[in-house]
Design a protein around this nucleic acid. Structure first.
Ligand code: MN
Ligand code: MN
Ligand code: ZN
Ligand code: ZN
Lengths: 145, 145
DNA sequence: TCTAAATTGAGAATCATTATCATAATCAAT
DNA sequence: ATTGATTATGATAATGATTCTCAATTTAGA
């Protein structure tokens, strides 16, 4: 059993939910695919692979992952939520290329620290934050010439 | 004529659009109301004041303001777009209280500078960015005790 | 004033996500 | 293993914010 399966199972038993093959199938596919995936993308992928699960269940299960602390939902402004496994992944923010939709992750402790200072100055308790830089990636900039 | 009206007019003539009383009415109401307003809120407000304009026109006009550089659209994750006049307003980011929905603005040149460094490191050209800190404001924290 | 082009408003359409609900699966107690 | 209560699933309907459609109206330049 992977550590992720274990975390999911713990969350399930803690909340009197039930272990199902669908939940394992979604977790397996979710972990196999690349980060920042869409519910629809995950649905299509599983359908193509024969491990079909209803789209509503995909949504429900991705939300379950988020509640269990395995994953996080992102909104990059294209109208579709994206999900990524964040268990055992360092916190990071994103650069998003508006041209090719590439998503680049970065970590910057200095920025995080300054954010905390801003919050402290306003006596504000931060639960979460989002920092996204939108623009054109190196590859697209090169190709534009 | 206010400077904002002037900017709108210039944008209109530049794009061969037309000056209408509806556009002026929306601008006037938009400027009178507080920042980070919703299309629906603006619509209701104008309806109550007798300066009624169709909801579709509110959306169209707010988008026009964004295109003309007068305003910017924000997405704070509650499913509704919010708009704020940004002409002659310093760039800023936001603290959002999840409890009372208060929105606090802040400016931090250090963070902006670090963002530029991150982009440079990835040879990424930034067009825009969003930084939002979500949590509980000072007032709500006090009231929670 | 005349006319082409743009705008408006009411309602339909869109689209991602959630809700509904009948059926099926799970699980704890027996 | 069987039972029974509870939860999950999946097909589909519903939702809700925003955009689209289109006939009627308004604007702006000649
Ligand atoms: Mn990421
Ligand atoms: Mn603001
Ligand atoms: Zn790119
Ligand atoms: Zn608050």
């Amino acid at each position: 059993m992977t550590k992720e399966e274990d975390i999911l199972k713990k969350h399930i038993s803690k909340h009197r939910l039930k272990v199902t093959k669908e939940r394992y199938a979604v977790l397996k596919a979710f972990m196999a695919l690349e980060r920042h995936i869409t519910a629809e993308e995950l649905y299509r992928h599983m359908k193509d692979k024969g491990a079909s699960v209803g789209l509503a269940t995909i949504y429900r299960t991705l939300n379950l992952f988020c509640e269990s602390g395995l994953a996080e939902q992102r909104q990059f402004g294209d109208g579709q939520a994206r999900y990524e496994l964040t268990y055992n992944v360092n916190h990071h923010d994103h650069l998003i290329c508006r041209q090719c939709n590439k998503i680049i992750e970065f970590e910057n402790r200095e920025i995080e620290k300054l954010q905390e200072e801003v919050a402290k100055k306003h006596h504000f308790k931060i639960f979460s934050h989002r920092l996204e830089l939108y623009g054109t990636c190196a590859t697209c900039t090169k190709n534009n010439k």
